[in-house]
Simulated assay, not measured.
Amino acid sequence: MGIISLLFNPRRRKTAMALAKAARERGMTVAEFTSSLSREDLARYVAPDKKAPHVTVPDVTKFGLPPDADVTADTFVSDREIDEAERAFVSGDWKPAAQLLSEIGTGWDRRTILVRSLGEAVANDEAALDLWRDERPGDPDAAAVNAEGLVCLAWQVRSSLRAEHVSREQFQKFFAILESAKPAAQEAAALAPEDPTPWVTMLAVARGLQYENDAFREVWEQLVARDPHHLPAHNSALQYWCEKWFGSHELMWAFAEEGAAKHPKLARLPLVAAHEADYRGVKGAWRNPLVAPAVDRLLPWLDGEGRDDPGTVTSRAYAARALVELGRGEEAVEQFRHLGVHADALVWAYGNKGRIAEFKRVRYLACRLVQKA
């Protein structure tokens, strides 16, 4: 909208002036201020237009959803035991984490989630891990956490920015740390030959070190030989097969289809693929013929056997997005009821205004679909 046309439209001029004044009072630009507003807040600044059709912004609380102000992007750990073990580890006590890893046993998905959370803590402070390894030399669980910690540190150094925004020095440090993570993961794998967890870490190493497709497949074969239905591993591998890394849309969809056929919990994969393709500008990505059947396979599992699965919260976030895209408002709202205030899933991170804004945007759309039904 050009500035001249804005000035000659009284309604838009009043709206622009009101927004500019409010932004100035808060020491913000108009763009910063408007991006911070919910749709209800923004609607209050818009002068009424008798000629324009009346559009009602849904009151999400009437659909059994928490108000906008309560939505948070803070990391949500639905597993209380993992949350408590991580908190103790961060404070310097490694024993609760070691005990929980022992109790988890062959619950590989849950084990990987705990090892990953401990690895993120180690990337910031190695004190608890050092105590653990000093007291228990050769402990396979400590070795797995050490390897994952190096991977987390490498990605912390690289940052989550696109490659063109990462400095040469950052890349050099990133590759150097990953090179040290590789033997660390191999050591962890040797100490626990049946455990897929070190191989999940190796998938991240392989992606970061830019393995060719065949070399990546060799790592993948080691992983699935230990757990063919490992959800965190499938999520990691799907990223490798995306066009933005070392695959293509065709390879990504093929991998998603193959995984979804293995187990209902892996039916999330076509939804992740659709989200990735949509973000890359592929028209009609959500209408891919794999998406609707994947949703129909995933939802019963989320409400049944998978209700307490470690990956359920994230799967519900992808399901909510997919259901909105498919025009299935009632089912989408139900998923948002399960999600509550939590907007930390990766699916919400791709919007230009941040996770909270994207979460609320899709949630509004779900409610609008119900209104129109």
Rank of each mutant, 00 (worst) to 15 (best):
L6C: 05
D309T: 00
V333M: 11
P193G: 11
R355A: 15
A181V: 10
A16F: 11
S315A: 15
V200D: 12
V90F: 00
T15I: 03
D70E: 15
P48L: 11
R13Q: 13
I177F: 00
L101E: 05
A206V: 05
S236C: 06
A190S: 14
S102H: 12
H342V: 02
R26P: 03
L65E: 10
P196R: 07
G92K: 08
Q239K: 08
T15C: 06
E325N: 14
P228C: 05
T72Y: 02
A319T: 12
K372M: 12
E148D: 12
L129D: 13
A190D: 14
L129E: 12
G119E: 09
D227Y: 01
A176S: 12
W199N: 10
R12N: 10
W245C: 05
L114M: 08
V57H: 03
L223H: 02
A181E: 08
D303V: 01
G92Y: 05
T197H: 07
F171Q: 13
E243P: 00
V30T: 12
A204C: 05
R87V: 01
I82S: 13
V341P: 01
H165A: 15
R207P: 00
A319H: 04
R168K: 13
A43Q: 12
G284M: 09
A73F: 01
H249D: 15
D296M: 02
A349G: 12
R226D: 02
Y350T: 14
A128D: 12
K62F: 02
A69D: 09
A123Y: 04
G138Y: 07
F174K: 09
L290T: 08
E258Y: 01
W348E: 09
S236W: 04
A188W: 04
E187H: 12
L302H: 06
V313R: 15
V295M: 10
G354H: 07
A345N: 07
A332H: 05
D68W: 09
Y364W: 07
E258P: 00
D41T: 01
S236T: 14
A176M: 02
K262R: 15
A85D: 07
G351D: 12
P96V: 09
R80W: 03
V224K: 08
S91V: 11
R368F: 04
A366N: 05
E148R: 11
R307I: 05
I104E: 07
A121P: 04
D109P: 04
F63H: 14
D214Y: 02
L326E: 07
A22V: 06
L369T: 03
T197D: 11
S36Q: 11
E258V: 01
